[in-house]
Design a protein around this nucleic acid. Structure first.
Lengths: 225, 225
DNA sequence: GTGCTATTGTCAATGAAGTGTCAAAAAAAA
DNA sequence: TTTTTTTTGACACTTCATTGACAATAGCAC
């Protein structure tokens, strides 16, 4: 696991770096925000630990830059207790966790471990088909970066289709996935498929939700196997 | 607060002792491990600060003896920078924290404060979602630097939502988190969610507490992945 | 190709279920 | 007691699921 550590105080920096290395992490250090940003851009890290108070680019700004440019690199912020209140409004910069100075090193280790667990092996189950994604934990649906709001049934339908993509899913299988054993009399599956199409396909050029006449439906880019 | 300080170098010992006493602690000193052990056995301390390199009984051994004999006296170890193995051994012997020489006195004070706060109070856990924070020890809630006062149920609700953020938390999970197995007959969860919204979302522009119809609620900034 | 039939797409309306809101009663705490 | 917290019920409102009707399409037999 690689950690990027940005902290302007040389002693604290050395202390934290030593400790994290003892814990088995590979640590790269920077003493100012700009250096940290460059490192983050040129290297690949699993986690960034940023001090808030730094000359030049402060931790908040650095965190925001990281969030803009790269994929979601987890961030832990270090902040002094007496500046906590004033700076809370800057906390929308998107850090994953915060640590108030002074803190124990073991506390830092616990946070690092927790954040890494959450971001890596964590319960972040994400389904993706082409440019369509479904996060099974937050139940957020995105296509081409746009958020899409779905009903519970729409979500269940999409989940089933995505999990089996690009296979065809039979109507009966879809109905069972939604209603279990007691399906409604008339086939209201049609309506739900229609509604799902309206939301995930209609606003876009490429249509992913395809009908296989007499059998069922499949979710896949056209002419894929 | 009583601190036991064990350090063989007379000058350093005096320096540290003076500083800690200025900071308001009561400090007992020992210049070797055996004396330190006797003091620890006969007196009652809140914290021990031990040098690693000492003639006779070294800091590690002393730390282990302390751990064997007495209840959990918190220990901070002082170790030289160039001895990495020492540090590893320090943690296996059960120290709560350690400091690499040379260090600033203010750094020592910070560690002492942190260790004492944890051993007396709880761990300093701070949950954060966007600009909303919840300190699990003091049970203080802040948003944009403003303090927010919450009921016990509101706190429990917020804690559960923050811990799982940005995942959706099902109604049943929230109800179980609050009431355990015997939930109230009617769904008073609605009222509590409503009240929580009034306090943490209504006064602000960005609403964090989102409802996922038919499923539950989630605490997250809108549209964020 | 033509016509027939089963299947599917489309849409609006209905009723059901879930939710937001508020205030008063009940319970608990101070 | 007084105060705070929690529960409950009522009502309005939103969202959802289901249904039925009709049009459009695909597949099949001829």
């Amino acid at each position: 696991m690689r950690i990027l550590l940005v902290e302007d105080n040389r002693d604290i920096l050395a202390n934290l770096a030593d400790y994290l290395e003892i814990k088995g992490y590979t640590v790269d250090c920077a003493q100012d925000g700009l250096t940290g940003l460059h490192l983050a851009a040129s290297q690949s890290y699993d986690l960034a630990v940023l001090d808030v108070m730094m000359p030049g680019m402060d931790g908040f700004t650095l965190c925001q830059r990281l969030r803009e440019g790269r994929n979601n690199l987890p961030v832990i912020m270090l902040t002094a207790r007496d500046t906590l209140d004033d700076r809370l409004q800057g906390f929308s910069s998107g850090a994953d966790d915060y640590l108030v100075k002074p803190f124990e090193l073991s506390e830092l280790a616990a946070r690092v471990e927790a954040v890494l667990r959450r971001s890596h092996g964590g319960a972040n189950r994400l389904l993706a088909v082409a440019d369509l994604t479904l996060d099974l934990d937050s139940l957020e649906v995105f296509r081409q970066g746009k958020a899409i709001k779905l009903n519970p049934i729409g979500l269940k339908l999409l989940e089933t289709l995505m999990q089996r993509s690009p296979s065809v899913v039979k109507r009966e299988q879809l109905e069972e996935a939604i209603w279990g054993d007691d399906c409604p009399d008339s086939d209201s599956l049609r309506s739900h498929i229609h509604q799902l199409r309206q939301l995930i396909d209609k606003p876009f050029d490429i249509h992913l939700l395809q009908t296989v006449h007499g059998i069922g439906f499949r979710l896949a880019p056209p002419q894929a196997s």
